[in-house]
C-alpha cells in the first residue's frame, strides 16, 4: 500500500485508541449509569467533560481535536493519492503527521507546555504541505 494510505489507516486506528484512552477512565470515574444515560445536562449537572478528572478531560479534548485534524488529513491523503501526486515529500509529511499526533496525546495528558502546541503545529503544517503539494 502507498505510504500516504498506510499513514491514513494508522491515523484512523489512532483515533480508535484515543477513544479508548478517553472512554475507559471516563467510565471508571463516572460509572456506566451516567455514561449510558441520555446525558441530559440538568440530570448530570453539566457536560460529561466537566465531570471527569483533569487528565481524562485532557484526553477528551485531545480526542475531539483529532477528529478535526483527521478530516483534513483524510482529504490531503486521498487527494494526493487519487491525483497521482504522491512523492517522497508527501510520504514524509504523512508519517510526520502520524508521529506528531501520537506524541500530541501524552503531551496533552501530562501538560507538556509548549510541546503539545508544537506537535499540533507539526501535524497541521504537514497536512497543509500535502494539500499544497496536491495543487501544484
Amino acid at each position: 500500500m502507498q505510504h500516504e494510505l498506510t499513514a491514513l489507516t494508522l491515523a484512523a486506528l489512532l483515533q480508535a485508541v484515543q477513544f479508548a484512552l478517553m472512554a475507559v477512565p471516563a467510565n471508571l470515574e463516572l460509572g456506566p449509569g451516567k455514561t449510558m444515560s441520555p446525558r441530559d445536562r440538568p440530570r448530570l449537572g453539566g457536560e460529561l467533560i466537566d465531570l471527569v478528572s483533569l487528565r481524562t478531560a485532557r484526553l477528551f479534548r485531545a480526542f475531539n481535536n483529532h477528529f478535526e485534524a483527521l478530516i483534513l488529513f483524510t482529504i490531503a491523503c486521498l487527494v494526493v493519492h487519487l491525483g497521482d501526486q504522491s512523492s517522497a515529500f508527501t510520504a514524509l509529511c504523512a508519517y510526520g503527521y502520524l508521529g506528531a499526533r501520537v506524541l500530541y496525546i501524552p503531551a496533552y495528558a501530562f501538560g507538556w507546555t509548549p510541546w503539545r502546541s508544537v506537535f499540533w503545529g507539526v501535524g497541521f503544517a504537514a497536512t497543509c504541505a500535502m494539500l499544497v503539494a496536491a495543487l501544484i
Partner: peptide, 19 residues
Amino acid sequence: MTELSILASYGLLVIVTLL
C-alpha cells in the same frame, strides 16, 4: 480546476479559517 483540486482548495480554506 478538477473536483479534486477544488477539494484540496477547500481544505486550505478551512486551514485559513483556523489560522
